[in-house]
């Protein structure tokens, strides 16, 4: 079972939900922070025995001795990562998407394998949670390849909670697409609703069942609730706005460690997810 915790808009409490959900369960699980641009889960689930692994990706290196300047590689490259000036090939490694097309097409075998660092994957343990997160190198533009590397740690039959990046474009889709259920964290404000509508559309395109967690449930207005009813989206948990909750979060604390009541609620949330996922399967 793979559960993604996602949100259209950033800062809605996605990490609060994923870390508290992971901490409240009493069985071994994997928590994968795929918000590799700004990973935060490790600030709440503080893993021990962290091992760091550098991840890199293919970029071409041109052997000037062999290259004839025929331009075949630059014509093929869709991402403007190669340019031919005179009879020399210029490589812009930061634009390369690692398709290796240039290497395949070069008639002179002049394209050799080089590397660009994507970032690191940190893996550690916290109680029953085996925890990994990606950390995109500052300056690296493409997050999906690193997200895919983090997800390659999933093994069949694992119980996995994924902290997905915000938004509805390729990084978010990449993080969500492997999951069996998407938990969408939102808040009842015009911004929250607007971004939720887009995310729901994205999740539906992926044909993955989803449910809502409403954070800061008592601010804003009712529009979100009307929308959820209209669309038949189950509301699986509501978290009120309380200064104490905001304070626990601000210092990197876990709600479920501060109050047994919250632990019960997050356990219930997990039960509701299992039920909603089962119902979705039946109705398919």
């Amino acid at each position: 079972m793979i559960i993604s915790v996602a949100s259209g808009k950033g800062g809605t409490g996605k990490t609060t939900v994923s870390t508290n959900l992971a901490a409240s369960l009493d069985r071994p699980l994997k928590l994968l922070d795929c918000d590799v641009e700004e990973p935060n889960a490790h600030l709440f689930i503080k893993p021990e025995h962290l091992v760091s692994k550098i991840e890199s990706t293919f970029v071409p290196v041109i052997d000037e001795q062999r290259c004839t300047g025929c331009r075949k590689c630059a014509d093929l490259c869709q991402f403007n990562a190669l340019a031919v000036i005179g009879d020399k090939v210029l490589v812009f490694p930061e634009l390369c998407h690692s398709c290796e097309g240039c290497r395949l097409i070069c008639p002179e075998q002049a394209v050799e394998e080089g590397h660009r660092e994507l970032g690191t994957i940190e893996t550690g343990v916290w109680k029953h949670v085996s925890f990994s997160y990606g950390r995109l190198r500052v300056g690296e533009a493409m997050s999906p390849p690193l997200i895919n590397r983090v997800q390659s740690l999933i093994e069949p039959d694992d119980l996995v909670i994924i902290d997905a990046p915000p938004g509805t474009s390729c990084p978010a889709i990449n993080a969500m697409k492997v999951s069996d259920f998407v938990l969408l964290v939102t808040e009842p404000t015009p911004f929250g609703l607007h971004d939720l509508v887009l995310t729901v559309e994205a999740v539906r395109q992926l044909s993955i069942p989803c449910g809502l967690v409403i954070n800061r449930a008592d601010i804003g207005n009712d529009e979100l609730y009307h929308y959820a009813r209209r669309e038949g989206l189950p509301i699986l948990l509501e978290i009120p706005f309380q200064r104490t909750i905001a304070e626990i979060y601000s210092r990197g604390g876990l709600l479920v460690e501060q109050s047994p009541e919250w632990r019960t609620r997050f356990c219930q949330l997990f039960a509701s997810i299992l039920q909603a996922a089962a119902e979705a399967e039946v109705s398919q």
Partner: peptide, 30 residues
């Protein structure tokens, strides 16, 4: 949000950026 491709494209060559931050461990980290 973030530090990836849309952010890089948004800030390259700008006169200045204003970083808005909340007083939380994650705010500081980000």
């Amino acid at each position: 949000p973030g530090i990836g491709c849309p952010v890089i494209a948004s800030i390259t060559g700008a006169s200045a950026v204003l970083i808005l931050v909340e007083p939380t461990v994650s705010g500081l980290h980000d």
